[in-house]
Nucleic acid binder design. Sequence first.
DNA 1: ACCGAAAACTGAGAATAGCTCGCAGTATTG
DNA 2: CAATACTGCGAGCTATTCTCAGTTTTCGGT
Lengths: 209, 209
Amino acid sequence: MLTPRKQPRQQRSRETVAAILEAAAQLFQRHGYADTTTNKIAERAGVSIGSLYQYFPNKDALLVALAEHYLIQSTEQIAQVFARAAEDRPPLPDLLTDLVECVATLHTDRPGLHRLLFDQAPRTPDLVTRLRQAERRIAHALAGELRRLRAGGPNPDLNALLAVQGIEAQLHGVLLDLPPDGDAPGHVRAVIRLWQLALSEPCRLQDVR
Amino acid sequence: MLTPRKQPRQQRSRETVAAILEAAAQLFQRHGYADTTTNKIAERAGVSIGSLYQYFPNKDALLVALAEHYLIQSTEQIAQVFARAAEDRPPLPDLLTDLVECVATLHTDRPGLHRLLFDQAPRTPDLVTRLRQAERRIAHALAGELRRLRAGGPNPDLNALLAVQGIEAQLHGVLLDLPPDGDAPGHVRAVIRLWQLALSEPCRLQDVR
DNA sequence: ACCGAAAACTGAGAATAGCTCGCAGTATTG
DNA sequence: CAATACTGCGAGCTATTCTCAGTTTTCGGT
């Protein structure tokens, strides 16, 4: 059980839940997941420990809730990139530039939260499932654009998924885990260039439905 | 403190440490990191809890020790690929095929251990550092081969690192986290093809020292 | 063979963190 | 204005990590 055990119905309780999540986000980021206690979270949120457990069945559930928020936000940002692409119908290099830079911004905007969810947190099966779902949705949108552009090689669906996974891992490694030797923008450009090459191979016509 | 607090000197204690690590690996894989208690590990290893804490300062240290073992083994496997390449001097497609298939084998051979270290485990800064070090060593070897092959684009070092990060993430996603829709070999082939394209761009001569 | 010091081992229990449960206020409904 | 549902409380129960004082084993030196 990782989903809330009870939905807040009144305004008062909605505020309680919001305060708990806010406190959890702050403390998790400041001290790490393992070193943050649920009692401290309740204290900081200004509610009792009992109230916390009314809405979250266990400590992991707090993390899953934060992850859900973050994933929804991120997915929306990326969806906007594809919405613009659907109108402007940009060439492949421009589309990839927009996509990679959007993902890079997600990393650099809130590195603490990103780190929390991807590094510190024990990845419960639940969390992994949600991550993969988000990945697949983004890959699906990308595959559509690849088909439009007659790009992405013989299997645009698979290559789109590989691209999404690769881009995330590369930006994460380069922006969060490497010594800040200064040239983050250069690294981002390298990622863009790399995927322009990898995805520019035309897809065969019979693969376009 | 995550390194052993005491080095075993006698044969007896070396066996104790080995038994503890073996028990930890089994129980972590069977029940997950969080649901495995240090007391159970000691019990299964046939030693007292006190002995365990003589050699491992805390529960995380057990995981770090296992990760170290696994990383060393993996790095050796991959080093062999590059050792063969240094002799045979294969063309880029063959080199990438060998490399990707080697990494794929590491995933599928012991999926439980791989999952443990990459998914379930809380990634302590220590663990992340070791992972990145291993990544960098492999990337360095790959960059050398790219230079020999006049491939890897304008910045073979950076592109080699991006390739290593991308390959790991893609294989992980495709081999461990996606529903086994059967075509794992096909996915591995797709990864190979993709990196052949991405890395085949010639590097400029002035970049070769 | 024997001794003594260092190494190894033991396990009860201290310290601590996650989580429960019964009760007491507060909003909502008819 | 009852009756009912919702919300909040926090002492304390339970389980787990980790310590430490005391015991046993090993091994080099005589």
